[in-house]
Amino acid sequence: MTPELGIIEGFFGRPWSWEARAQVVRFLAPHGYGFFLYAPKADPFLRRRWREPHPEAELAAIARLAAQCRDAAVRFGVGLTPFELHLAPEGDWRGALRAKLDTLSGIGIDDLAILFDDMRGDVEGLAGIQAEIVDFAASRGIASRLLCCPSYYSDDPVLDRAFGRRPEGYLETLGRLLDPAVEIMWTGEEVCSREFSPGHLERVAETIRRRPFLWDNYPVNDGAIMSQHLHLRAFTGRPAAIGPLVAAHGINTASQPLLSLIPALTLAASYEQGTDYRYGAAFRAAATAVCGEDLARRLEADLLSFQDRGLDRISNDRRAELQGIYAAFAHPAAEEVIAWLDGAYSSSGEDVQTQ
């Protein structure tokens, strides 16, 4: 069974353009991608400056994207991080949150995600504070689906090193306190999980008292380390057998929107084909559908350099040679490769702290 698939624009660094977002929605909708969650870390008004209103032009652009999603029969959602509110939940935080939610309500959203990821979490009573924030957001009734990303959204101990040791029984308490209708996001055994097994997902579901909503950190390539790589290969380690065990499966995409379409198509193929899925053939089919046959062959030839070796291990002479090769392709996906080779996507500003 194929679960609901979707796109999460939830990475650090250079965000997508509005045109690219709409293009991705239109392209993937026929392939089972039924939701788009707008949550770029670069939007300060959804994160560190969440108490401030969006500039009118930005808010209008979000509203246009919401309308474009509706036209494609795709759910549109916004990921809001009430940044560090759980560290000092005193004062009139409800008034500030109400104002932000009322603004989002005006643009029309289907999904609202309250995100507590990638900030300090070693706080006494963390689950209770966060449940209170989520419950308040739910009471505003601005979306038909409410999602929550916990502070500790994976078993990965790297989160404890980066954000403080997780409180005892944190996930169990959060799952007990949150309304069963609230979906809880999960990245797996690792922040960037190499596989999702049925046994793991069953254990997580028991802990949080609901099927997990997968936030799959592939093909994301943000941060100082991963931005040096293009994640193009087909999905593996996501067997079709996990479909009934998850509430939905969203993928956190790469910084390159068109190239992200390639692995996105292979995830849909993995669920559809089940045990007949072959990741090499899936890559070739997806790359051809996105880029055309000639460019797809070229990308396959360069997978080792782009995905495994990375930009910092490609010599300047080889970079120049590759830029010339890809310049011969009159295709926007080739332009993304050239920009990556030129360092345009290299991490800057706020990096992923878990890397």
Rank of each mutant, 00 (worst) to 15 (best):
T103K: 03
L101K: 07
P257E: 03
L65F: 08
S154D: 01
D317E: 15
G77I: 01
F11R: 11
L87A: 13
D342M: 11
P180S: 10
E9T: 03
A88Y: 14
F35V: 00
E183C: 14
V25I: 15
Q256D: 07
Y345A: 10
A96I: 01
S139Q: 06
L171W: 08
L147H: 09
G292N: 06
A143W: 02
Q353V: 08
S255F: 03
E172D: 10
N316R: 13
H331P: 04
A334M: 08
F136D: 01
F35A: 04
D156K: 11
C69S: 12
H54L: 07
T275A: 15
G13L: 03
N217R: 08
S144I: 04
A269H: 09
Q23C: 04
I251F: 12
R309F: 14
L87Q: 14
A73W: 08
G95D: 06
G121L: 06
A330R: 14
Y271C: 10
Q68C: 01
V290W: 10
L177Y: 10
T288C: 14
I7T: 04
R298A: 12
V24A: 15
R161V: 08
F27R: 05
L46S: 05
S17D: 05
R318C: 08
G324T: 08
G95R: 12
R194Y: 10
E52P: 01
T173V: 14
L232F: 12
A205E: 02
A66I: 00
P44E: 11
D117Y: 12
R176P: 00
Y271N: 07
L171Y: 05
D43I: 06
P55E: 06
T2M: 04
V78P: 02
R14P: 03
R47L: 05
G34Q: 13
R313M: 13
P150Q: 06
L341K: 06
A42H: 05
I107H: 01
C192N: 12
V246M: 07
A282H: 11
V123N: 14
E321P: 00
E336N: 11
L322S: 07
D118C: 13
Y279K: 09
D276C: 12
P15A: 05
L299T: 08
P30F: 13
E19T: 09
L258M: 14
G169Y: 13
V220H: 05
E335P: 00
A301P: 01
T103C: 02
